[in-house]
């Protein structure tokens, strides 16, 4: 028989408590190596779309905030286009990076992204997905990065038709994927790693 000659993905290992050194060195006081931490600025003054702030905290199974988590987000631009070579539907806003990275505050664990509200992106069958932001969470004690999505509370109609949200068998868990609106253009999206209100995490 022939062989497919496949390799195995490298096993994941925890990012550990010192992920800041490698990924956000300026944040943790290692200055002068990189001009600025990657993923700090997602928008500039020319970026199209509604400016929003998304903040939140990651909590463990005891309700304790994680003070060593690192969060990355990935989202479409205001027209629903991704700034990626895999995006073949058009050219995304050159003034939007689509990707952000933040470490939780050492004291409180809170992180804040300044971004824009994403446009809708199609599901593979052509239906539109509700506007959403993909989250990736790593920290000490997390052996493999956790992926989830944040949806918007002011998109109730689109959320009700979203191809991902509607396929969740336990519909009582859907609210864990929907941010709270805390002000004009301000959203809070807490991530619960474990327990009764555990956030839905995806195997993508």
């Amino acid at each position: 028989m022939q062989s497919l000659n496949r390799l195995k993905e490298s096993p994941s290992q925890t990012a550990g408590p010192y992920v800041h050194i490698g990924c956000v060195p300026n944040f943790c006081g290692i200055e002068g190596v990189y001009p600025e931490d990657l993923g700090t600025a997602m928008v500039n003054e020319k970026t199209k779309g509604e400016r929003i702030k998304v903040s939140g905290t990651v909590y463990d199974g005891t309700g304790t905030p994680l003070k060593d988590a690192m969060i990355e987000i990935w989202q479409a631009d205001a027209d629903g286009l991704y700034p990626s070579p895999e995006e073949h539907r058009g050219t995304a806003d050159p003034n939007f990076t689509g990707w952000g990275r933040k470490a939780g505050d050492y004291g409180t664990g809170e992180w804040i992204f300044e971004t824009i509200k994403p446009g809708a992106v199609p599901f593979p069958d052509g239906r539109m997905m509700a506007p959403h932001i993909t989250f990736w969470v790593v920290a000490r004690g997390i052996n493999i990065g956790l992926q989830t999505r944040m949806y918007f509370p002011d998109e109730a109609d689109a959320n009700a038709k979203d191809p991902i949200l509607t396929r969740i068998e336990h519909q009582n868990r859907v609210p864990t994927l929907i941010a709270q609106k805390t002000g004009d253009g301000a959203y809070k999206f807490d991530i619960i790693l474990q327990g009764e209100n555990e956030t839905v995490f995806f195997d993508v």
Partner: peptide
């Protein structure tokens, strides 16, 4: 305390 206790939700890649 940092491990999700529920199964990861499978989804199609988009």
């Amino acid at each position: 305390a940092r491990s999700p206790s529920r199964a990861l939700l499978s989804m199609p890649q988009t």
